[in-house]
């Protein structure tokens, strides 16, 4: 997504829309610490909040998705 910087701190998670996801796999290339691909090219995302030092990489991975299936959000949503 094209993100606006958050107003406050908080745990952020990488959330995925499984219906939009088409298995392009760009996210796994850009965030291999948290995302790996299953046998069919679809992402398996490490649960839990994104470590602060990976937030920049996470944003790049999310923006790279050609079908906009990923977003960074706090879990309440």
């Amino acid at each position: 997504m094209f993100l606006t910087p958050a107003a406050e701190e908080g745990d952020r998670h990488v959330l995925i829309d499984r219906i939009k996801c088409d298995g392009h796999g760009l996210c796994a290339e850009l965030l291999p610490e948290l995302i790996r691909l299953d046998d069919w090219g679809y992402p398996i995302i490490e649960p839990g909040p994104v470590p602060a030092d990976l937030l920049g990489h996470a944003r790049r991975a999310i923006n790279a998705c050609p079908v906009l299936a990923l977003r960074l959000a706090r879990l309440a949503t």
């Binding site: 499984r18 219906i19 996801c21 088409d22 298995g23 299953d38 046998d39 069919w40 090219g41 679809y42």
Partner: peptide, 12 residues
Amino acid sequence: RQCGPCVFGLRA
């Protein structure tokens, strides 16, 4: 048939 893991995983 909307999500890859279901379509391909269950088929496999």
